[in-house]
Design a protein around this nucleic acid. Structure first.
Length: 110
DNA sequence: GCAATGACGCTCT
DNA sequence: CAGAGCGCCATTG
């Protein structure tokens, strides 16, 4: 069987994010086994369907800010979802990665 | 197979 | 702390 594509790894890593915690694209990329491919993480998230089971809303950028897609401001929805999980935003709409930032530790080290 | 794109990251100013 | 510039890698056309 063929090995999972980078996107699949990214989705798997995103699913590992516990509820009430947030991760960054860089960490997800690292967990996916492709460090430095933070852009692909965001790209993969953008390719996610609306009915996906992946907690994409728990994935934010390394600046602790919620990235935005095209159109209006879908970031508000992501913020709402995170707040519903217990993640607090500051007045600037920023999340304290020091508090909610969860770095998934990879089980397989090589 | 090559060129362009893209929910990004890090460093310097 | 905020803003701007360069580099990164995988997917799509």
């Amino acid at each position: 069987m063929p090995e999972p594509s980078t996107y699949d790894r990214i989705y798997a890593a995103a699913r590992r994010i516990p509820r009430g915690r947030v991760s960054t694209y860089g960490w997800i990329a690292e967990l996916a086994g492709v460090p430095g491919a933070a852009r692909q993480v965001g790209y993969a998230m953008a390719a996610l369907p609306a009915h996906t089971t992946v907690p994409w809303h728990r994935v934010i950028n390394a600046q602790g800010r919620v990235s935005i897609r095209a159109g209006g401001d879908p970031r508000l929805e992501q913020r709402f979802l995170l707040e519903a999980e217990g993640v607090a935003f500051d007045a600037n709409g920023r999340v304290s990665l020091e508090r909610f930032g969860w770095r998934g530790r990879r089980r397989k080290e090589e």
